[in-house]
Design a protein around this nucleic acid. Structure first.
Lengths: 230, 230
DNA sequence: CCATTCATTTCGAGT
DNA sequence: ACTCGAAGTGAATGG
């Protein structure tokens, strides 16, 4: 990895065209050739970048480049016509290190885990609710949870971390299809998420779909309060 | 901005829990307090991070921290219980600079520009096609382009950079609504994008929606070939 | 290998 | 401030 602090101008041309006026920025060149251009604020997203695989060539300034240009980096994607052009005016700091390969990240808490938890606690959706199966296949994709209520009627559950309008549309398509199957019909829908956006709730209610807000931490605690990833 | 190359362990707890085993990485602390943990590969996304606003406190190693720990950074979000904990084992490089505020990025080529171009070249959708208005409002949102064809019938156009299934769903909702309005009906739909995914094309065709693939570069050239952003 | 879905999404526009 | 949709989305997962 090479880190350069430099006063520079940057242009990107590819899927869009973008330009960064002269300013001092952090340029990072990773071992895989990728390049990041960071400012001293914002979030983790660089102002501009080139994803791997790509190659950098350093050129002397062209006639058209501004006075005082030290060098020009041309970073090109291996495939496609994407190009990042970094016009370096002044280098304030330059340091390289070999970091080696990173062992990588361990995660927990995503939608998959929420689905498993809900499958184990179907009473979240009402008394006497029984699990028929997780990931019940339909011709257009898997329904997250298929349940039967106390009366024996089928219930299709769509699980999201955050419930937005797309999820309601998806569940609607599943319900429409499943209700054509005489073995399943009638099937009603439940939209379950840790948080449900107002617009999604309106659409769901309008279509007769019940909304259930799920307490992830609370459900986790009911399993094994001592179990931890690390 | 402060850049530190260090052998470290990182844990994040908040919306999920994540852990990075000991390894050498780049730690960036930006002027707004945000922290990035980068490895020497992957894309522009850090392995782990904390978005602003947040504050970092440096502590001496706790009893529970591994042998040889130099210091521990606790980066906490101003709001919420998000916390990034960086256990620093060994600092290999440490450099700080003041970059100042960045002038920011200038963009071109997004969906908005495509919409403007198409509004100016309605013949893209057929001979004698006339523009009624851009961003025609409906109760559920604006239709990108409303046109009238040679016969005087209304045409609703949904413009996307990349045409996917969501765009077809959106246009379908607009059409359903507009066709209830006797002043507009009958309204047919056109789905316009620089690239249309096969599944989106199938769904559109099935619903009687015409698909038009747009040549952005070609359309731009018809306006003013000398006009450039920079 | 292609398609779909998720994301500690981030980012910007509009209300 | 909040909501909603787009992203040079990227990344993982399933077919």
């Amino acid at each position: 990895m090479r880190m350069v602090i430099a006063r520079c101008e940057v242009t990107y041309s590819g899927r869009l065209d973008a330009y960064l006026p002269p300013a001092t920025r952090l340029l990072v060149v990773k071992a895989d050739g990728s390049v990041l251009v960071h400012s001293d604020g914002g979030s983790y997203k660089p102002l501009n970048w080139m994803s791997p695989p790509c190659t950098t060539t350093v050129e002397a300034p062209a006639e058209t480049d501004p006075e005082g240009t030290q060098e020009v980096w041309r970073v090109r994607a291996r495939k496609g016509e994407d190009e990042l052009r970094v016009v370096v005016h002044e280098v304030l700091h330059d340091h390289s290190v070999d970091l080696g390969v990173d062992p990588g990240l361990v995660k927990d808490g995503v939608e998959a885990h929420l689905q498993v938890l809900l499958a184990a606690h179907t009473d979240t959706f009402g008394e006497g609710m029984r699990l028929v199966r997780r990931e019940h296949m339909t011709p257009i994709g898997p329904v997250d949870l298929l349940l039967r209520d106390q009366a024996g009627a089928h219930v299709a559950v769509e699980v999201k971390r955050r419930g937005e309008i797309d999820g309601v549309e998806q569940l609607t398509r599943y319900l429409e299809l499943m209700n054509r199957d005489p073995m399943l019909a009638p099937v009603r829908g439940i939209f379950a998420a840790q948080e449900i956006k107002p617009q999604a709730r309106v659409l769901a209610t309008d279509r007769g779909i019940e909304c259930v807000v799920v307490d992830y931490v609370g459900l986790s605690g009911r399993d094994d309060p001592t179990a931890r990833l690390f």
